[in-house]
Amino acid sequence: MATIELKNVHAEVAEGDEQILHGVDLEVKSGEIHALMGPNGSGKSTTSKVIAGHPAYDVTEGDILLHLEADDFDGIDEIPESARTWDLLELEPNERAALGVFLAFQYPAEIEGVTMTNFLRTALNAKLEERDELLFGEDEDEDEDDEADAGYETSPMEGPADEGEVGVAEFQQLLSEKMELLDMDAKFAQRYLNAGFSGGEKKQNEVLQAAILEPTIAVLDEIDSGLDIDRLQDVADGINALRDEQGTGVLQITHYQRILDYVEPDTVHIMLDGEIAMEGGPELAEKLEDKGYDWVREQVYNAA
């Protein structure tokens, strides 16, 4: 069981000194679904970005920790004890990804010329390789030997023989299974990453990537915006499958109650002015839908 823990996180925009987060406390465990709600500008997206390590934000105070248990990664019998607690703020974005932190973007980047298949297989192999390095330390000598061999023994007219841990055929099998699950057309596999995708297709693609990369913790930033009802259903199925089949802990950022009807949260957090202002069960989201953020504001500030 993995846990991501935000403790008193303060963050500001890296260029400038506008502070956005004023002490966020939040904890998400494997298999749980959390909803993070709040008005525009309250700091929800910033929270997701500092978890993933976006360079545009500086964390000025507080901690973001990832706790792992011995058997959290499929295929790894036992995570060494020394590699079970991670200070994410010390890690590069790709290292966080390697440990299973996944961010579904509100506005995913469009990368021309890179097919989905190529991208996802490269990412998956990079992730597995980096994870090994983080958990068990680097084996540099071996790597260098490999590279030297590739340089001298293969022709410059060929690619490197090295295929990565997940080979082409195996990956294609995996990809088509996951795509079917999300009701995505097979032709997506050969399209360029998000290039020319509709808003809904991009969101579906974010969930597909999560399904392939099997994160321990997935932060979904407004995965429901721009989705029609059919696709909302597909995306919700995908999120539930992440939790049910892979035990992923989900932090779902949303403005709307609507998706919570399909993906029922265990906990709802409401964010105001860069802090978690209120927490509760699924009924809190319904109440919010009814009464609006002014009601939260009244409750919080009157109480204080």
Partner: peptide, 30 residues
């Protein structure tokens, strides 16, 4: 080369260099 593009690929597990390399490979793909 877009910082957001690089971050997107990094968040999927590619390191900074590999992310840029992938963007360049895509750029010359046509």
């Amino acid at each position: 080369i877009g910082d957001e593009d690089v971050f997107y690929l990094q968040s999927r597990g590619l390191d900074d260099d590999d992310a840029k390399q992938m963007i360049v490979a895509g750029f010359i793909e046509p």
